[in-house]
Structures are given as structure tokens and as C-alpha cells.
Amino acid sequence: MDLFDRLKELREKGLVEINKAKNEEMLNDVRVKLTGRKSELTEILHSMKDIDPSDRREVGQRVNKLRDLFNSKLDDAKTEIVEALVEEQLNKEKIDVTLPGREMHLGAKHPINIILDDLEKYFIGMGYEVVQGPEIETDHYCFEMMNLPKDHPARDMQETFYIDSDNLLRSQTSGDQARVLEKHDFAKGPLKMVGPGKVYRRDDDDATHSHQFMQMEGLVVDKNITMGDLKGTLELMAKHIFGQDRETRLRPSYFPFTEPSVEMDVSCFNCNGKGCSICKYTGWIEVLGAGMVHPNVIENAGIDSNVYGGFAFGVGLDRFAILKYGIDDIRDFYTNDVRFLEQFSREER
């Protein structure tokens, strides 16, 4: 047979064999057979010396060309096979991505603590120190130092949980004020503190009363603190908690430890001041009590009230949470129903 015809035949057969190979193994066999050391092509090259010298160059070129063709086809076939394999594997691995994932518990902060942390961070940013006082407080700090006279109703057994004649469960965080005032060294700068914590009153629990709740006390004392400073401080805080577009108003009020005393209302966030059932048709919602520290409180701590003065405020954290989240029963905070609590996992500030 003519060598050229043989190459032609080799080419056709070879291409058919490459096409027939179904997997990498078969393809390898074909590769060996077509281009390996013992392949016909190699054989032809080895037998070059027997070929007519005038044809040698032509044959050499054709053999090399054919080998290149085989190699390229083999590579293509290999790619095809690998791709098919990958595809098959992927098909096997296919999942229904619409099936639900395995869920674990999602942590949540208690709503009162969300409010508290938010307020604390706010005041820390303004240079306030966060102070913790005892919950088992003495009559002395809770009342006497705070200018509540002996026969003040808050000091009744009916109102406050007494433990013995001198010790009680604090009914207000104000005792922290007295403790801090006594200790503070004004030579080292002004006093700016907030004091959060649990307080207790002898109330039967119902939708609006709780024998335990949370307060936060604020106190700023220095030489030139004014009621304007109090007003500005409270307005900024109210806007921080209840929204920048809230309006506020101060009304005269009464607390034994401040004089003048005020309460602050914010414009109702439900009706924007038009009047609704939440604000009892007044357009305003009471949010906190405050005032200029009573001179007796300053003097009781051994500080000259002619030189030093300041303001104080008290926030009911339960009340803030009730208002902010639209909660209608204060007991919800303390029964710890997880269905109630877990909704606050998305409220973290």
C-alpha cells in the first residue's frame, strides 16, 4: 500500500477511534495506540530510512501533521469527557435550595436592657460615668440624704420593702446620687454620672404596676449648671430615644430632692400631638422627672450649696420600653415568655 494511502487510512481510523472513546481510560488507550512509542505513526518515522528519499520530507511533514491533529483531537476529547464527568457529578450533587436550613436559637437582649444600653452609651459619649449602687440600700442614703423627711409617705412600710429598721430594698436609684456626691472630689473636675438599676415598691403587680422595675438616675454637679442645661440635656436625650422630630415640654412638678422640679413630656408619637387614646387625648406623653438638685441634698453630702449646684433626672426604663415598643402590660417584662422576648433579637442597638 502506498504510504500516503496508509497515512490517510490511519487518519480516518484514528479519528473514529478518538470519537469512540467514552472515558479517560479508553482515551488513554487510543492515545497510546495512535501516538505512542509503538504506534504506526512512530513506526513510520522509524522506517524513514526505507522510504524513497524524495518522499522523505513529504512523509515526515505529513506524519508530524497527523500526530498534531491526533493530539489536538485527543485533548479536545479529553476536555469533553472531563466536562461531562463534572457535569454528571454536579447533577448527582444537586440539592433543593428551597428546603429550610437547620436553625438554632437566636440570642436576644431583654427589651429593658436594650433601652438601658442605648442610654448608657449615649451618656458615656457625653462624658458621663456609669455608677452602680446597692439594691439593699440604707434608709440614710435612700431617703434621709435625699431630703425625704421622716414622715414622707415613701418611707412608709406600706410603700417600701423594709428589711430591718435601717435597711430596705431601694425604692429609687436616687441613693446613688447621695453616695457619689459624698465621694466626688470636685478638685478633679465636675460630676457627671448616670446610675441605672433595679428598684422595688410595695405595689401589687398588675398591667401598669410592678413591685420591681428599672430606673436610671442622672446627675450633673458643678459650679455653673443651669436649668437651661437641664432642658438642653433632656431634649437631646428624648430625641435620641424617641426620634428627632419629637417636640418636648417641661411642666412644673415636685420631687423632694430637686427644686425646681419638672416633668418632661414628649409629643405623642402615635398621633403627633393631635390627641389619641395613647396620650389620653392630650397630645403629650410623660416620660421623665427632673430638676435642679435641692440645696439640702448638696449640703447633706457636705458640699457648699452656695458654690455648687446641678441638675438631676430620673428615667423609668420600663416606661421607656413600654412607650417605645408599644407594650401594654408591664408584667410582660418579668414573665419571660420567650415568644415575647425573642422578637427583640432584631432590635439590638
Binding site: Y128, V130, K192, E235
Partner: peptide, 15 residues
Amino acid sequence: IKSTQPILAETHGGY
């Protein structure tokens, strides 16, 4: 009454 912020010597707040 004009709202103001207390103008005081710097304090370092915190926990």
C-alpha cells in the same frame, strides 16, 4: 428658658 448644654471641664465617661 433657652436650651443649652453644660459647659464643663472635660470628663472621661464610661463603665
